[in-house]
Design a protein around this nucleic acid. Structure first.
Lengths: 166, 166
DNA sequence: TATGAAATAATCCTACT
DNA sequence: AGTAGGATTATTTCATA
């Protein structure tokens, strides 16, 4: 995305695609089951899986959690405007924002050199604290606009960490 | 989120929290390894894992993919305004939007009764097709504004499906 | 590159502390 | 409720085609 053309030349055939699609829904099934579903025996299935993992197509596996049961059902989207949009400023912002655990997603948006953040907390009080203490103090932030989600109509599960506690 | 207080009364102790945090990063490790890491023997670890799964805290497992290697690195956020925001209209919109595979996320936003959608495609051409043929034709849509992401600064992996092909 | 068999390691179940 | 041990099943490696 952006600078540098990345080598996209990995040839994924139908079996690889099937593996990808199955594992996107059920990431913990056994290789035996996976082999049965794609219609191949165990060894080649395992070899393909390993190849997908080592080539970087599969970056890892994650458990999906119920945000409500974990008490982390407050989602807000934050539009962030920067006072400086030069490369160094963007890099500083990027580096600082990725380590905030409550920030689930952060995208650089075209057109206005803004960022759009997705922030998950355990409630409005927690959100205000994150906004005041973490997001507003990020490098070169000049203005933020918050949009609170009333309902997650479609969403994948939530990661385990992010302010809860280890 | 919103109507109906949900029973949050599951008591998660430190071991459960450890399980949740570990599995959020490595969702495919064995129960043996999991037991070793949380400092418990295998049987209780497995019992706790099963309890977390059956209580709904863990909703499933998913493989994370590299969007670039899969050729699905175009992300856009769409603000959708509805002409009708009564309950029935919202329900109709919700029902229709969840089945669009390119829509990764959809949130009902407070304040203006808008929706914010995250749409992933294989490029601008694919995005325009999705916007014209799928999003704009959703029930009660009156207006959309698109914000294209130039860079994913922080983001979990991507699901396997969404326009690719089975 | 797929198949099939043998060694290894995981899961599952039962009994004990 | 956690630990320990044994039976079942899956995964891994290796040989073969």
């Amino acid at each position: 995305m952006g600078a540098g053309v990345v080598e996209k030349t990995l040839d994924l055939d139908g079996f690889d695609r099937k593996i990808i699609n199955i594992l996107s829904g059920e990431g913990r099934i056994s290789v035996t089951e996976l082999a049965r579903r794609i219609g191949l025996s165990k060894s080649p299935t395992q070899a393909r899986l390993k190849r997908l993992e080592e080539s970087g197509v599969i970056r890892g596996y994650r458990a999906l959690y119920d945000p409500i049961l974990l008490g982390r059902d407050h989602v807000a989207f934050v539009e962030v405007k920067l006072s400086d949009t030069r490369e160094a400023a963007l890099a500083a912002f990027n580096k600082a924002v990725v380590v905030i655990p409550e920030v689930e997603q952060c995208h650089l948006i075209a057109g206005a050199f803004d960022y759009l953040l997705k922030v998950r907390t355990d409630g409005m009080i927690g959100y205000r604290a994150v906004l005041a203490e973490k997001i507003s103090t990020l490098p070169h932030v000049s203005h933020t606009s918050t949009y609170v989600a009333m309902q997650a109509v479609k969403e994948d599960g939530v990661g385990g960490n992010g302010g809860g506690g280890t």
